[in-house]
Amino acid sequence: MKKTNSELKIEKQTAAPYLFILVPFILMAVFYLYPIFYMVYLSFFKWNMMKPKKFIGLHNYIQIFHDPDVWQIGRNTCYYMIFTVAFSLILSLLLALYLKENTRTNRFIQSCIFSPYIIPLVSVAFIWTWIMDSDFGLLNYLLSCIGLKPVKWLNDPDMALTSLVIVSVWKNIGYNTIIISSALAGIPKYLYEAAELDEANPVTVFFKITIKMISPTMFFLLLVNIISAFKAFEIVQIMTLGGPQNSTNTIVYAIYQYGFKFYKIGFASALGVILLIVISILTYLYFKLLKSNIHYQ
C-alpha cells in the first residue's frame, strides 16, 4: 500500500525526537553507562593494572565483609553522613525561620551565609586546615581566649571526623538555608490566617502548617545532602588523607585509595558497586515515599 504524503511526514516527525536525544544518549553511554558496567565487571576480578586480570568470582565481596578496615570505613561514612546531614538540615531550618522576615539585615545575613556555598570546596578545605591547625590555628586561639583547652582537631583520631563534619556543615548551610527560605516564602499567607481563625497555637501552626508545607523541600534536601555526604572526597583528601589511623577514611576516598594507591582495582570496584547499590536504594526510597505521603502542591 502506498503511503500518502502526510503519513510519511508523521513518520519523519516521530523519528526526529529520537535523533535529537541520540547525541546525549551516546555521551551518557560512554561516560556513565560504560564505566558502571565495566566497574561491575571488574569487581569479579583480581587486577593490579600490570598483570593480566584474573577472574575470582565473588571473592572481592567476601573479602570486603571480612575486612575490619572496610567496616571502619563504613562506620566512618555513616557517622559523617548522619551528623553532617542532621546538623546541616536542622541549623539551616532554624536559620531560615529566623531569616523569614525580609528585612535589610536579614538579606545581608543571608548573603553571608550563602557565600561558603560559592567558594570551591577545595579552598574551603584548605582554609579550614589552617583554621583547625592544632598549634597555630585560629580556632584554638579563640578557644584559648575564652579560657578553654586547645583541641587537636584533625590530628586527634577521636576528633578528626567530627572536624570534617563541622566543615561540611559550615559549607552546606548556605545552600540549604536558601532553598528552605524560598520554600517558607512560598507558603501562602492565608493559611496562617485560616489557622488564626481556627485558634491554632504557635506550636500547632509550626508543625501542622509550616513543617508540613515545606516537607517536600526538606525531603529533597535530605536526599541531596545524604548523597553528597556519601560522595565526600576532596575534604578528606585535602584535610586528613583518611587519617589519623584511618579515622576519617570514608567510602569514596577508600575506593580511590584501594584503586590508585594500592592498585587493588577489583577490590575497589566491588566497593564501588556497593556504594552504587546503597545510593540506588536511597533514590528509590525517595521517590517511593514522595509519592505516598509527602505533600506536593
Binding site: 492565608y190 493559611l191 485560616a194 516537607s215
Partner: peptide, 10 residues
C-alpha cells in the same frame, strides 16, 4: 475566604 484557604496537607 475567596480562595477557600483550605489546608492542602490535610
Amino acid at each position: 475566604f475567596q480562595n477557600y484557604a483550605l489546608y492542602p496537607t490535610m
